[in-house]
Design a protein around this nucleic acid. Sequence first.
DNA 1: CGCAATCTGTAATTTAATTACAAGATATCC
DNA 2: GGATATCTTGTAATTAAATTACAGATTGCG
Lengths: 285, 285
Amino acid sequence: MNVLEKIVNSVNSFSKSERKVADVILANPQTTIHSSIAALAKMADVSEPTVNRFCRRLDTKGFPDFKLHLAQSLANGTPYVNRHVEEEDGPEAYTAKIFESTMAALDTARQRVDINAINRAVDVLTQAKKISFFGLGASASVAHDAQNKFFRFNVPVVCFDDIVMQRMSAINSAEGDVVVCISHTGRTKNLCDIAAIARENDATVIGITAYDSPLAKECTLVLSLDVPEDTDMYMPMASRVAQLVLIDILATGFTLRRGSKFRENLKKVKDSLRGSRFDKKDFNN
Amino acid sequence: MNVLEKIVNSVNSFSKSERKVADVILANPQTTIHSSIAALAKMADVSEPTVNRFCRRLDTKGFPDFKLHLAQSLANGTPYVNRHVEEEDGPEAYTAKIFESTMAALDTARQRVDINAINRAVDVLTQAKKISFFGLGASASVAHDAQNKFFRFNVPVVCFDDIVMQRMSAINSAEGDVVVCISHTGRTKNLCDIAAIARENDATVIGITAYDSPLAKECTLVLSLDVPEDTDMYMPMASRVAQLVLIDILATGFTLRRGSKFRENLKKVKDSLRGSRFDKKDFNN
DNA sequence: CGCAATCTGTAATTTAATTACAAGATATCC
DNA sequence: GGATATCTTGTAATTAAATTACAGATTGCG
């Protein structure tokens, strides 16, 4: 695991002085790797052994080894750490933090995603007679987005963010239909019902949701995205971005599977939009 | 430039002993970063100062600094680059590429985003009597998402993805109202009209769109996201994720500006959802 | 062949990091 | 509420590492 993330994660297990060290390092990681233990100790206003103990607590052999790990973490150019927004953050701070948290979330999602499941989902989708996307609340916009994408593929697609419509649609589903249920927590009761109903009617149910959730249990195929997120106070952000990227991936897999002939269709859809838009050349350069 | 590449490139300008050092390092770079200068000197069968001179020749301050650079080179072969999906890509390939492209897009967005504009947008939004989010096509789902977020703030929010409704809503806007128009290209004619109408009716119009686009010209305040994207063949992906992150940032700025008392309200909204969900404890662990 | 320039290693010096230990703070138990 | 135990933290001593200065060796060139 990334050392920077590790620091953030274990900030609670630190002692007072160790936290001072952590703060200084997180504030200027780039400076840290070029500092001696003495300089860092001074910056954090603690003694040198404290810095050393801090390094050891992070499972490194000592300060030099810690710097090595830190250097590797910083190598990407940017430390994608899930830093939480604080009360007193200014615009620069919270903007940076949200970008970074989102990127960090995507990074973990990328590592944890089950490619086999994606591949099977693409299989199922390409063979679907009809595709339905269902989501509620924040996940509704993800469902809309999915509809917008798959709609271009010349496949029957529906999308409902209304429980009653979802229910009716689920009841009317039949073999060969694919229902995609989207929920970050996987604990939305109504959506679980929908999934169950759809499956009873022989539809294939794909869940974009948390592994091991009630919704997951109702699905034929689960695409889980374990994205760490602080939902205590604010609203789902990173998880929803990860869901969208997953939709992008499914859509891409879909077009690739359908072959090149099919992709001409996409161009056609794109061209049809031209009339509703101003010409590009008038405004670029 | 990457230190490893640098070593390879300048192998000709090395002296005999220095080349021995280079060979050892290139053969086991991973070991090198965990070795002392003495150990490395022994492996290369040269003296310690020779190793030191070698490091300096590579424009590093000395051996420890060299190890830092080496560590960074080893950390990540491929930073997040915008790699395009190819015809013959398998699931692993396109999944990785889409994740990376999205992250690369967020990275550039982060660097280019105008913090001042964000701050002013937050200003405007916190003082709004009513907030409207308008988007069409792919941007409609972004607008929905924005509505979902700002709705929790106990502010009058509307969101339309229907031109007629948007038009009516725009005509009815008044001073103190804020209209947010979302469009990646900024060339959607209908949305430009809406922006113009809203402004004629004294609303403040925020555009989440391309800088210098027709839509941007109609807006009071533009939040531009120049995200490189390959829209030739497929559909907007990265740009829409960037838009969502921007919405997240605005929402976060909003809550922070409103102060802590206000955030209790968010908890209330969250708690109200509890009834519609299965209990968490039943399914974790 | 001999001088000059460059390279390389040894030993001394400096700097940095680590360890051992003691004082102080904090929690816990009667 | 006081005494004991545990955990933190810092000072000083020790050790290890890196760097520098210098001298011997090697190579190139006239």
